[in-house]
């Protein structure tokens, strides 16, 4: 249970590290139907808004010498473009908008989640599992459409001795189906862990004796979380590219 009552002088330390992830309807009421605007919906919408602000409004000048916002947008574009080109290969450029969508959404959801009192959409398994499943389904479908039955060569390691190949095939098959699990839990887990740790330190700040240490620790964790927010978005995106490469060129 989340509550941990200490016999401290303030009457006990109270930890609710997971309360920040509660999904609430925005308009009041207590029913959450699938269409109810919730805080999750709000912060996802804000992520969309940020993408629009950066990539559409930021580039409306179409300036040859870019403004600051436009150069950030171009940087993001070049970053993902190069990633898709380098990791997934030139014939994967059709997936560039898709990969860019994933990256921009995750990176903005992560960063918006770092605003105090906000809601982190990517800390929810519902969101990350869906994202990972989208990638998984895309990769599987693309693999079979582009390569047909040859896609199964992905599980048949030609470089291994013949006797080992069936065993390796089983392992490869399992690892293939574990991909969406690790893909989603990595993102949600990292984000959730950081936010929960910050909340735990915030709980310690109630004791006046250790509150300076606690606040310092929160600051340090916050810095780390800013890094993690970007790196996890990067990792999610680059793994998507790796999986796409597997789908397009299945033979080892």
């Amino acid at each position: 249970m989340a509550t941990e009552t200490h016999g401290a002088e303030e009457g006990g330390l109270v930890f609710h590290p997971m309360d920040q992830f509660i999904v609430k309807p925005l308009m009041g009421g207590d029913k959450i139907a699938f269409y109810t605007p919730t805080n999750a919906a709000l912060w996802m919408a804000l992520a969309v808004l940020c993408v629009v602000l950066l990539l559409v409004l930021g580039t409306r000048g179409r300036a040859i010498i870019p403004s600051r916002v436009q150069s950030i947008a171009e940087l993001a574009y070049g970053f993902i473009y190069k990633m898709v080109e380098d990791v997934a290969g030139k014939d994967a450029m059709g997936f560039f908008p898709y990969v860019m969508t994933l990256f921009m959404f995750i990176v903005f959801a992560n960063f918006l989640g770092l605003i105090p009192m906000s809601f982190t959409a990517t800390a929810h398994f519902a969101v990350t599992v869906m994202l990972a499943l989208l990638v998984f389904v895309t990769v599987t479908v693309v693999g079979f459409v582009k390569n047909g039955a040859k896609f199964l060569e992905l599980f048949w390691v030609k470089s291994a001795p013949l006797a080992l190949r069936p065993i390796l095939a089983v392992i490869e098959l399992i690892s293939y189906f574990v991909r969406p699990v690790s893909h989603s839990i990595r993102l949600a887990g990292n984000v959730m862990a950081g936010h929960a740790v910050i909340k735990v330190f915030a709980g310690f700040a109630a004791v006046s004796l250790i509150s300076p240490v606690s606040i310092l620790a929160i600051t340090a964790m916050y810095g780390l979380e800013v890094l993690v927010a970007f790196i996890q978005a990067y990792v999610f995106t680059i793994l998507t590219c790796v999986y796409l490469k597997d789908a397009l060129h299945p033979s080892h």
């Binding site: 839990i185 990595r186 887990g189 862990a193 929960a196």
Partner: peptide, 23 residues
């Protein structure tokens, strides 16, 4: 980063197990 992500993921799994046990 891919290597770090794979190593990190397993740690996150155990963190998740801890969270599940706690909550």
């Amino acid at each position: 980063f891919i290597g770090i992500a794979f190593a990190e993921a397993l740690g996150i799994f155990s963190f998740l197990v801890a969270l599940l046990l706690m909550f």
